[in-house]
């Protein structure tokens, strides 16, 4: 058997792949979190819970309406995004302009409520959702086995992150968004409906979390706590990447996934904490994050 650094190659590549898959979810979640933080100045603690709601949306679409995976990939994020728009209008708008701490507390409470509601309805062990027929099976790459669905998740995440980056950096909507992140009052005085833009952005960030949730549904057990297990790592990603830096969030998401994967191979007990060790180091050496601008 081929050995790399004294470890069997299939183990190493297998963990590397799992790391990249996890990194895909980190990247998509931290991307939405960074976009929302940029324009609302709110750290959305409910992001993990909305990821969970996204996963459940796939399950519910199937069991209530018989709608399968592929349409759910669009309809789930759309529905959860609309729910996000309602959250912004009803709950976040009234506290706009107050200390960001209020937003943090409010979204924290919202996460608890969402988890509670889903636990009450579905139990904490959750439900299962099967891999769509088209993506079942594995591929033998010679040095490792690659489950087709894992490959799909990674490609989908890269496409989603790239598309979001393109929208933000290359389109007129993106320019308006960047400007409103810098100075919303001036943008509004130039004739742009900033409150509507804020709602749209929040809904968009939430839809990204829900899309990650739908992608995660066939891989993991769909359960009410699935978001909170991700969200602390995702906060570490955002801190390491630099608050509000879009590219930084995506790059750091994949990077941390891979670092976790390797840690699992070389020092398994450290895998769960390595992200936070990196976070502490970055905070000590570069408090603004790897890609953040200090303010």
């Amino acid at each position: 058997m081929m050995m790399i650094f004294g470890k069997p190659a299939p183990l190493l590549f297998g963990q590397l792949l799992l790391g990249i898959v996890n990194g895909s979810f980190y990247a998509m979640l931290s991307l939405g979190l960074a976009v929302i933080f940029g324009i609302l100045n709110i750290i959305n603690f409910a992001h993990g819970a909305l990821f969970m709601v996204g996963a459940f949306s796939a399950y519910l679409l199937l069991h209530w309406f018989g709608i399968g995976y592929w349409p759910a990939l669009v309809l789930g994020p759309l529905a959860v995004g609309l729910f996000g728009a309602a959250i912004e209008r009803v709950l976040l708008r009234p506290i706009r302009g107050l200390d960001p701490l209020y937003g943090l507390l409010l979204t924290f409470g919202l996460a608890e409520v969402l988890e509670g509601v889903f636990t009450n309805r579905f139990g904490s062990s959750g439900v299962t959702y099967s891999v769509p027929r088209l993506l079942r099976g594995t591929r033998d790459l010679g040095f490792m086995y690659l489950p087709n669905y894992h490959a799909f998740v990674v490609v989908a995440a890269i496409v989603v992150c790239l598309a979001t980056w393109l929208v933000i950096e290359k389109t007129r909507l993106g320019a308006v968004l960047r400007a409103a992140t810098e100075n919303p009052a001036i943008v509004q005085a130039l004739g742009i409906d900033v409150p509507r833009l804020v709602t749209l952005t929040f809904a968009g960030g939430v839809a990204l979390a829900a899309l990650a949730g739908v992608l995660a549904a066939p891989m993991y057990s769909v359960n009410p706590g699935m978001g909170s297990s991700y969200i602390s790592i995702v906060f570490a990603v955002v801190v390491i990447g630099g608050m509000g830096s879009i590219g930084g969030a995506v790059f750091t998401g994949f990077l941390l996934g891979v670092v976790e994967g390797f840690t699992k191979v070389f020092y398994p007990p450290g895998a769960a904490t390595v992200a936070f060790v990196v976070m502490v180091l970055v905070l000590l050496l570069r408090p603004a994050g790897l890609f953040g601008r200090s303010r």
């Binding site: 308006v176 400007a179 810098e182 004739g191």
Partner: peptide, 11 residues
């Protein structure tokens, strides 16, 4: 964070 052209076309 906007180019000169983007600033110009913003409003």
């Amino acid at each position: 964070s906007l180019s000169v052209a983007e600033n110009l076309m913003l409003p």
